[in-house]
Nucleic acid binder design. Structure first.
Length: 472
RNA sequence: GGCGACGUCGCCAAGUGGUAAGGCAGGGGUCUGCAAAACCCUUAUCCCCGGUUCGAAUCCGGGCGUCGCCUCCA
């Protein structure tokens, strides 16, 4: 049994075979840092974090690079509009994005290259393309010559003619072919620029990723990823540049995640229909976003709305519920054996699902089945090694999906409830006395009032347990 | 206009040739002083039409609908 991954270029699932035994090199296109990132960016980061984590879980040593586009028209425009330094602006949003990745429990990449620090590699790559007729200069601008690239269009499966029909690109009549794209743009007054053989200027959008990828990961990599809105022209052009330069296959697997939909449309900066990561995290947990994303398949669109995120939170609560402590004292017997078997099945089913092009929806089903087995075992009084092993497996598989599975925490300093525990314990104890005396009205009042303060009491056969829980 | 994806229970969503996972919601039940949680039972023949096949949600053709790319975009 082996891992199969859908490859956009060949349009099929292929057995995953790394170039170098046991090692995986992966590159994922990151954001252009001119504004706050939104949860569509978060989705992409989470999808590839899941891929990253699963590859490691399967024993691969992964070298993972993801970039920041920190030199770009929009950054410059934004900086000019707000009277800021474009480098500071880009740096501000880069750092903020890194912080968000941490908030979202995205495991760190090995390297986060930026355009501004890779200028030598970019210029060398353009020079190389020029030496081999793949590029030409026009008054300080340098363009890629698509007609010189025999298999241009192979990723997005469109011919040069297709690319032209219905195109709304404003044609630059100087270009040899309308599909030719900029590798280097000459500097206009007031713009940041770098010295180059073609005069001062800055790189085009696509060349940076080729250069950074070749520099940090090598001429051929295993996986190249990004949102499916990058297939054309960005990734198409990356292939053209990289393969024209090296003559080798650039990436063996092209992975593209589907778009997060808000009100039936793609969430994007240009459409303005977005929810920033900041805004999202004020109301929801990172785990909730992961559950929403994992409920479907990463290549398909995901609908974001109050209902869908609410469903995600509820299903998350169910997973977390499987981590509650045992209450019984039976460590062997049929019930314990059943739990042990269910644990093994859950792990096997999880792997089978994930091996099939990261079928997270089926993988989650395996976790839900494990939770049910744990709950059943708890009801049957199971505790001890098998109970702990089952919960450990739940945590372990959850971690492969980047889920923290934290029980809702006690409100911190901001919640002004530090040190409330002993008082709650006291109230619970007093209430136990009331219940013994059948003072139901008072006992219920204590429970209701605590509930109003997000402290949930549950009376079980062996006593009362309580926990903090955010309520609507 | 070109290229592509998708349309499965009230909602979300797996399943890509052998008779429909899972989550949420709903109904019934067990437990409980009540409540909550948990557990058990329960709810679909897969957008429409036609075809291939012993057999199709799954393959082919047509239609309708939704979405993405073709311009910066994760």
């Amino acid at each position: 049994m082996s891992l199969r991954i859908f490859d956009t270029l060949s349009r099929q699932k292929k057995d995953f075979q790394p170039i170098e035994e046991g090692k995986v090199r992966m590159y994922v296109c990151g954001p252009t840092v001119y504004a706050d990132a939104h949860i569509g960016h978060a989705m992409s980061a989470i999808v590839f974090d899941m891929v990253h984590r699963y590859l490691e879980y399967r024993g691969y040593e992964v070298r993972y690079a993801t970039n920041f586009t920190d030199v770009d028209d929009k950054i410059i425009r934004r900086a000019n509009e707000t009277g800021q330094d474009p480098f500071k602006l880009a740096n501000h949003f880069s750092e903020k994005y890194l912080k968000h990745l941490g908030d979202l429990n995205v495991a760190p990449a090995d390297v986060y290259p930026r355009v501004s620090t890779e200028m030598d590699q970019i210029i060398h790559l353009i020079q190389n393309l020029g030496e081999h007729e793949y590029a030409y200069e026009l008054e300080g601008d340098v363009y890629f010559r698509v007609q010189h690239d025999a298999d241009y269009g192979k990723l997005s499966h469109r011919s040069l003619d297709d690319a032209l029909s219905g195109t709304r690109v404003e044609e630059d009549m100087r270009k040899e072919h309308p599909g030719d794209f900029a590798l280097w743009k000459s500097a206009k007054p007031g713009e940041p620029s770098w010295e180059s053989p073609w005069g001062p200027g800055r790189p085009g959008w696509h060349i940076e990723c080729s250069a950074m990828c070749l520099h940090h990961l090598g001429e051929s990599i295993d996986i190249h990823g990004g949102g499916n809105d990058l297939v054309f022209p960005h990734h198409e052009n990356e292939i053209a540049q990289s393969e024209s330069c090296t003559g080798k296959t650039f990436a063996n697997f092209w992975m593209h995640n589907g778009m997060l939909q808000l009100a039936g449309e793609k969430m994007s900066k240009s459409l303005g229909n977005l929810i920033t990561i900041d805004e999202f995290l004020q109301d929801h947990s990172a785990d909730a976003l992961r559950m929403l994303i994992y409920s479907g398949h990463y290549r398909k669109p995901v609908m974001f709305n109050a209902e869908s995120i609410n469903g995600a939170e509820r299903s998350l609560a169910r997973l977390v519920g499987g981590l509650r402590p045992a209450t019984g004292a039976t460590s062997v017997g049929d019930a314990a054996d059943a739990l042990r078997e269910a644990t093994e099945n859950a792990r096997a089913n999880f792997i089978t699902a994930m091996d099939d092009d990261f079928n997270t929806s089926s993988a989650l089903a395996a976790l839900f089945e494990l939770v049910r087995a744990i709950n059943t075992a708890r009801s049957n009084g199971v505790s001890g090694p098998f109970y702990l092993a089952a919960q450990k497996t739940l945590r372990e598989l959850g971690d492969v999906l980047g889920l923290r599975l934290d029980a809702p925490a006690e409100p911190d300093a901001a919640g002004a409830a530090v040190g409330a525990k002993p008082f709650i314990d006291l109230l619970v104890e007093v209430r136990a006395g009331l219940r013994e005396a059948k003072q139901w009205a008072l006992a219920d009042k204590v429970r209701d009032q605590l509930g109003a303060m997000n402290v949930v009491l549950e009376d079980g056969a062996t006593g009362t347990t309580w926990r903090f829980e955010e309520r609507e």
